[in-house]
Design a protein around this nucleic acid. Structure first.
Lengths: 198, 198
DNA sequence: TTCGATGATGACACTCTGTGCTATCGTCAT
DNA sequence: ATGACGATAGCACAGAGTGTCATCATCGAA
């Protein structure tokens, strides 16, 4: 029979979660995590490139899903259609993610408690944005960067709003609300000289 | 007479810049920077909280400027007006920042060369977004978070486009283009079930 | 001038992260 | 058995960041 149940990676993640919850992220050392998992410090770093990563299991599933949806679209789809698809996928993903609000709230609280973790969280979202941007660029979309960035903003803000709200507004509703707010950016441009823009 | 010219902070920044340019960010040790500046490792950390920060001198000037512009507006200004002000200030700031393209290109190349520096760069922008969001929230704007996030996205993407482009498009033109691209987010929502949305 | 306070710097020790390298142990096919 | 192989332990090391104390220059007051 195997030494233990052998899911070293899972054991490490569980140990980390328990210790972080008890003492906070910074107070917990990698050695402590490894020992609680019955392993060695060195082994920890064979499963995770660094200490933060033990809290971010996912590969960029959302970004991949969005890229997939973009690639499926017909060649002549314009930006409006592509964005519509992006939003659809994001709403689906966001709804799934926020299904167990209590667990996500705890996780989010932990992440927000440490600058290191906040930075890593931003990096993950940046990766998602990069994935989306790449898919859009492949299709020749000239404004891929800003579109991808805003899409991820919608995901993030709706995610947080869904978790923070005591009300029962759905993720989709928060996305819709945020999209509406974007209209503020489309007003008549009152810059130095309003040249021509009927 | 003072030991040297005593601008310890400036000396450290210069030393760091020179060494980074010569050997890359990661290859340069804090000790090396300090010694080149005629100081000690320990002194370095008295001027900068960490190694990355030696490359990010600014206090959040842009965020403050935007917040200032927001606070000036009359009480009854709606989101469209506020966003207009935000854009105006961002365009001014962006134009100034991108005035010496060559220097900024070098700086940006260095930052992009290291994951640590990319993360820190994102953190700085997140700070700017937080400043703007706070100013908007103070005014009772319910969509402060998404508006602030998108505003910073405009700043960042236009900044990068301005630096990367060999053409002579201005920062303002890049912002305008990106704003136009945001219209894609305002299309009819074609989600699961189009319930009621005339 | 001398003294004492003050602020900046040096010097040292220490913890923790992250990494390379080697040895060891268990498992499995032959 | 035996040998190959994958996972883990064990060790050593560099570098980041921090706390603490000593030292030194400067400057105002007696």
């Amino acid at each position: 029979m195997p030494r233990w149940t052998n899911n070293a990676e899972k054991r490490l993640r569980n140990a980390a979660a328990e210790l972080f919850e008890a003492h906070g992220y910074e107070a917990v050392t990698v050695t402590a995590i490894a020992e609680r998992a019955g392993l060695t410090r060195r082994t920890f770093f064979r499963y995770f490139p660094d200490k933060r990563e033990v809290l971010f299991p996912q590969t960029d599933e959302i970004g991949e899903a969005v890229a997939q949806a973009i690639n499926i679209q017909p060649k002549d789809a314009d930006a409006g259609v592509l964005v519509g698809e992006i939003i659809t996928v994001l709403v689906r993903a966001g709804t799934v993610i926020t299904s167990d609000r209590q667990a996500q709230r705890k996780r989010q609280t932990l992440i927000q408690s440490s600058p290191e973790l906040r930075e890593r969280s931003r990096t993950k979202l940046a990766t998602t944005a990069a994935t989306i941007e790449s898919a859009l660029t492949t299709r020749g979309e000239p404004d891929a960067q800003i579109i991808a960035a805003v899409a991820v903003d919608l995901l993030r803000t709706a995610y947080q709003a869904t978790l923070e709200g005591d009300d029962n507004a759905s993720f989709a509703e928060h996305v819709k609300r945020a999209r509406t707010a974007l209209r503020s950016f489309d007003s008549y441009s009152r810059l130095p000289a309003p040249v021509s823009d009927p």
